[in-house]
Design a binder for these strands. Structure first.
Length: 938
RNA sequence: GCCGGGAUGGCGAAACUGGCAAACGCAGCAGACUUAAAAUCUGCCGGCCGCGAGGUCUUGUGGGUUCGAUCCCCACUCCCGGCACCA
């Protein structure tokens, strides 16, 4: 048994004070896990006390022996694919797993009782760093470590009493699984969805690997897994082109997903509408003859490629016309084309490929030094929002294609190389960053947008009629200490220098032909103007970056690529898959993947020319594995394709559940993969899961994240051993709304335990029936129907806490009815049966036990969910609330169908109401059927 | 800074579409059972005033709408999450 294999749980249990503790021998000895047929042995000797460990072990064995939870492909009932995020096999099934998995199990069991053929599979996300770290630390092979953990966790998971269909289990580190990761990679490569590129990428110095942008978190840009701040490194890496789907990923039509997730993904994708505008380099100032390096100007701009420029309505999406001659043109992306006449400088990111060629000889030393210091800074230092903007002049000028202004070109590290085109136009009057930059370097700050409201205190340039007035005199020269590289072109006479930026919409001023145009319309007008003349175009830019999947680690899927001196990048032929991860690689804590030093893996012949070649030694991000695992569950040993197309009618996933922390990681990749699979032709739908529900995070009793180092880990085994799985399951659901999570409070579990004990005794010790009272019997029936209604609604909506509250209320009511002994025996029997059916999803073991002991046919989990009749659920009377001026004054029991006249009459007749209305004028009387009467007095 | 979500008894929480605030449970108090304890059962359990009947206040703060507001609107405080020099 797993609990005896785990020395830790024993240690902790020793100091634990359970009700059915070790010193308290079980009522029936030898029942626990004694044998597979224990559940089939009729219980002649009655267990009079509720003994969860004995009951639970027995039923778990029986269910497994019977294959009760195997989902059958040919079952005629409507299919319902219920998926819960599979766990990483860390070695211990902890409270978080219980919290993530037993409430969904409750819902899945409920759906099954509602008549669906429910597939509820489970598996293990088996590749990943911890296995490799354990290998380095303890000299255990990651495979052994992982498989041992899986064996252990599988046993622990079975104690949860879930209806997981273990016959479909998926383990991602097995070649039968990961060969399909490689197969997907090859399909993606064929279609340009997988590509290799050198880029400045995020590197975790602790995990010794690159990370995807999604896996870098927080203000300090730390590794999502280990918390270490990441650094940037220039590396050749493999990417999946998720940005191809940026626009489609913004569309959540038909998806029943939490708003929170949709919002997070929308923000993450970060769509911006604007324009790409080309500024020509002013030939007179450019060091063209000497400085141009054709290699640089011809090298692809990674930033531009990855910014997925799209042109709505344009005939061609090829932006070559804007950028063909990059040596002479700087492209910028702006969301404010309406401010184009306010440009007084340009800033290039230090990594921008034009920086070198634009730097004049006399500026060279300063620019090189600046770039060097920018490179030395960490990502966090560079992107700290409160950092002062810095930059250096390159010596070159660019020409504003709209105004003809000649503006200086700077290099500044506040411009990101990875967004837009890596260059910005500086509009200091209408952009806070540009304003700061201009102040610092003494650049002029001409106002080109005027606030629309003439009474606006900062409102300059709007006349009495609210129309804009020309602003030929708004530009101003440098502030004190300015180094002063002044834009040339138009006159910029002295005037008031704006004290603050104005970023809101307004009226375009000082903007040539656009003067007087509202800025909102001006955006389109400016773009149109530029498009007609070939130096601008409407552009949509996304913040989303392509998914970096290369990992410099051993324990992952080998990327099926060979590098040949003759043929370059050569994909491994599909017939050669899987590329097996070698088992005998040596683990040395050098921070490098063992694959790099494993010649028997690395050295191969080129599949095309036979020359000596090398394999890619990086492995794939483990998020690749989880991007499509739901398909593999359908046919986990199918060897012709990722999944057997004959099983398609399970798809897509009907209900998915998992932690909110995956909103912008797994859940983005998960959607991307399904869309890519659709485009490959494997499936005919574009979203992986119709409905999604997230659970919150269960915290330690101290309200902090559970962690071994904090010592606040709640070990489920302790509670399961003493209270039973049913109690622990229900308690986790009772704590509060499942989507909220929250601290685990160890004392609260007593209440659930008491409740299940009450259910036990209530069921097994029927009332002594006295004279049957018709009213009491009818009330019993009403309570039954009303409870079924509430519990059904609550389960439909994932409201496990209120479902359990209602069941407790019903149990309490039954307790009183039993005490009174005045209900009919048949009605009582129905009432108790219904109770067992309703607790079956949440507390499957005790329900099964009591169901059997009640003489019913096995299994309670194959019964239909109880139905209710709305009419029968309704009471014949209700409590009429009587208010005077909205204040409660009396409550009167009245028939449900009481009419207004009668209700009002009763209200006025009430002795409690009288004193509050006596001598006062009645101004109104309100009657709300089935609710109240409110008497309004003056 | 921007975008979400939230704030209700000693605690976790509930309250349908604007209609009895605090269901259900924990903790606490009192009682029954017991030689005693545990377990179990019963009752009480937001604040203030009152012997009581009852009155009065109360859902983060301040306003508003309404016969009536935990719920809708405005302003604010605090907490949590996401994003953040994204042009």
């Amino acid at each position: 048994m797993p609990q005896t294999e785990d020395p830790r749980s024993q240690d902790i249990a020793a100091g634990f004070n359970p009700r059915n503790g070790p010193s308290d021998p079980p009522a029936v000895a030898g029942g626990v896990g004694a044998g597979g047929d224990a559940g089939r042995t009729p219980l002649s000797n009655r267990i009079d006390r509720y003994d969860p460990p004995a009951i639970e072990a027995r039923w778990q064995q029986r269910w497994e022996d019977d294959g009760l939870y195997h989902a059958r492909d040919d079952d005629p009932r409507p299919k319902y694919y219920f998926l819960t995020m599979y766990p990483y096999p860390s070695g211990d099934l902890h409270t978080g797993h219980w919290y993530a998995e037993t409430p969904p199990d409750t819902k899945a069991r409920y759906m099954r009782m509602r008549g669906h053929n429910v597939l509820f599979p489970y598996g293990f996300d088996a590749f990943g760093l911890p296995a490799e770290n354990a290998a380095i630390r303890n000299n255990i092979h990651p495979f052994k470590w992982t498989m041992a953990n899986i064996d252990r966790m599988r046993q622990q998971a079975k104690r949860m009493g879930t209806m997981f269909d273990w016959s479909r289990e998926v383990i991602t580190c097995l070649p039968e699984y990961y060969r399909w990761n490689q197969w997907f990679f090859l399909q993606f490569y064929k279609r340009g969805l997988a590509y290799r590129q050198k880029a400045a990428v995020d590197w975790c110095p602790n995990c010794n690997t690159t990370l995807a942008r999604e896996q870098v978190w927080g203000e300090d840009r730390h590794c999502e897994r280990c918390g270490t701040p990441v650094i940037k490194r220039d590396l050749e890496q493999w990417f999946f082109r998720i940005t191809n789907y940026a626009e489609e990923l913004l569309n959540f039509d038909g998806l029943d997903w939490p708003e929170r997730v949709k919002t997070m993904q929308t923000n993450w994708i970060g769509r911006s509408e604007g324009a790409t505008i080309s500024f020509k380099i002013d030939a007179a100032s450019s060091p063209q003859a000497a400085g141009f390096n054709p290699q640089i100007s011809e090298s692809p701009l990674p930033l531009r490629e990855r910014a997925r420029v799209r042109v709505p309505g344009a005939a061609s999406s090829d932006d070559a016309s804007l950028t063909a001659d990059q040596s002479e043109v700087i492209s910028v992306f702006t969301t404010r084309p309406d401010t184009i006449y306010g440009v007084t400088f340009m800033v290039l990111a230090p990594e921008h490929p034009l920086v070198d060629s634009l730097t004049t000889p006399e500026r060279r030393a300063e620019v090189d030094a600046y770039i060097e210091q920018a490179r030395r800074q960490t990502e966090i230092e560079r992107t700290a929002a409160d950092k002062t903007k810095t930059g250096v002049f390159t010596g070159s000028y660019a020409v504003n294609p709209y105004s003809g202004d000649r503006v200086p070109v700077y290099v500044g590290d506040y411009v990101l190389a990875t967004y837009g085109s890596g260059a910005v136009m500086g509009v200091p009057a209408h952009d806070e960053r540009d304003f700061e930059f201009a102040r610092k370097y003494g650049l002029s700050i001409p106002v080109v947008i005027s606030p629309p409201d003439p009474r606006d205190p900062s409102g300059v340039g709007v006349d009495a009629e609210g129309r804009a007035t020309p602003h030929s005199d708004q530009s101003v020269a440098a502030g004190p200490g300015g180094v002063g590289v002044e834009a040339e072109g138009r006159a910029t006479p002295l005037s008031d220098q704006p004290e603050a930026v104005y970023i809101d919409p307004g009226i375009m001023v000082n903007s040539g032909p656009f003067d007087g145009t509202p800025s909102v319309e001006g955006k389109a007008a400016v773009i149109r103007h530029g498009e007609e003349r070939g130096f601008a175009r409407g552009t949509i830019t996304y913040r989303l970056r392509d998914w970096l999947i290369s990992r410099q680690r051993y324990w992952g899927t080998p990327i099926p690529i060979i590098y040949c001196p003759n043929d370059g990048i050569v994909p491994v032929p599909e017939s050669d898959l899987p590329v097996l991860l070698p088992e005998d690689s040596e683990f040395v804590p050098t921070g490098e993947s063992p694959l790099k030093r494993d010649d028997s893996f690395r050295l191969v012949k080129c599949p095309q020319c036979g020359a000596d070649a090398e394999r890619e030694t990086d492995t794939m991000d483990t998020f690749v594995d989880s991007s499509w695992y739901q398909y593999r569950y359908l046919s986990h040993d199918y060897d012709q394709a990722p999944f057997d197309p004959a099983k398609r009618d399970w798809l897509p996933v009907s209900q998915y559940t998992g932690g909110i922390e995956h909103a912008t990681m797994h859940l983005m990749y998960f959607r991307f993969f399904t869309k890519a699979m659709r485009d490959i032709g494997l499936i005919d739908f574009g979203e992986p899961a119709v409905k999604l529900n997230n659970q919150g995070i269960i915290l330690g009793p101290d309200g902090e994240k559970m962690s071994k180092s904090r010592g606040n880990v709640v070990n489920p085994d302790d509670y399961v051993n003493s209270y039973g799985a049913d109690t622990f399951r229900c308690y986790l659901m009772f704590i509060g709304p499942w989507s909220e999570g929250g601290p685990y409070r160890p004392d609260g579990i007593e209440g659930i335990s008491r409740w299940l004990n009450r259910v036990w005794h209530l069921t097994l010790e029927p009332p002594v029936f006295n004279d049957t009272d018709e009213d009491a019997t009818r009330e019993l029936q009403r309570q039954r129907h009303a409870t079924v209604r509430v519990v059904t609604d609550d389960l439909d909506e994932f409201r496990f806490n209120t479902m359990l509250a209602k069941l407790m209320e019903y149990t309490n009511y039954l307790g009183r009815a039993k005490e009174a002994g005045n209900v009919g025996p048949t009605a009582w029997q129905d009432a108790v049966e219904t109770l067992l059916l309703m607790i079956a999803p949440a507390a499957p073991h005790i329900a099964e036990e009591l169901w059997q002991r009640g003489g019913h046919a096995y299994s309670v989990h194959q019964q239909a969910w109880p139905t209710y009749d709305t009419a029968l659920a309704q009471s014949e009377t209700f409590t009429l609330v009587v208010q005077v001026n909205g204040k409660l004054r009396d409550r009167i029991d009245v028939p449900v169908d009481i009419n207004e006249a009668d209700a009002t009459a009763l209200a006025f007749a009430s002795p409690r109401v009288q004193p509050h209305i006596e001598g006062l004028t009645i101004s109104r009387v309100l009657f709300v059927p089935r609710r109240l009467v409110n008497i309004v007095v003056l």
